[in-house]
């Protein structure tokens, strides 16, 4: 947190010196909301790791204005994001596109959950197999002992 700040201060001092310009907002609240949603998907390239909605660096302001102009002109969100993406590349997208290089990233939740479940199942099956290796009578007594120990 602290370090992040040090860094941001170095690069984009104006981010803390200003709060934005009222003229840049769209008069229609619905369109402004759409523009803001788009802005949160786009990275301010100068002040690393903030979206253009959260920064007042010069480039962030310019991109905010550009997004709003395009939204006001009736373009849909995907088209606006595509416009910026074509100019600044994957780096500008805070939600990385699914490519060969990001497959593993997007698969993480499924891999972690699936892997975890697989390990649990394997261990459980082995524990049950060990219990079953005893005679049914032994297993029952073991289970009873187990209950008694609790």
């Amino acid at each position: 947190m602290t370090r992040w700040l040090f860094f941001c201060l170095l690069l984009a001092l104006p981010a803390w010196a200003a709060v934005g310009d009222p003229n840049e907002r769209l008069p229609d609240p619905a369109k402004e909301a759409i523009a803001r949603e788009i802005g949160r998907e786009l990275r301010c390239l100068v002040c690393q790791n903030q979206s253009i909605e959260d920064s007042d660096a010069q480039l962030a302001r310019d991109l905010r204005r550009l997004v709003r102009e395009r939204v006001a002109a009736g373009e849909d969100s995907a088209a606006v994001i595509r416009f910026v993406h074509q100019r600044y590349g994957d780096f500008v997208l805070l939600r990385p596109p699914v490519t060969a290089a990001t497959m593993l990233l997007w698969a993480t939740p499924i891999l972690a959950l699936g892997g975890g479940i697989a390990v649990i199942m394997l261990r459980r099956r082995r524990a049950l197999a060990e219990a079953a290796a005893l005679s049914p009578e032994e297993a029952r007594r073991l289970a009873e002992l187990d209950r008694g120990a609790a």
Partner: peptide, 29 residues
Amino acid sequence: SIAAVVLVGTLWPMFADILFGAKISVGAP
């Protein structure tokens, strides 16, 4: 699993750069 997502999301831009030369961002969305 959540920790794995946060860990991979945090480190992936660095590893994508070093492994594939891809410059990507992983942010709030």
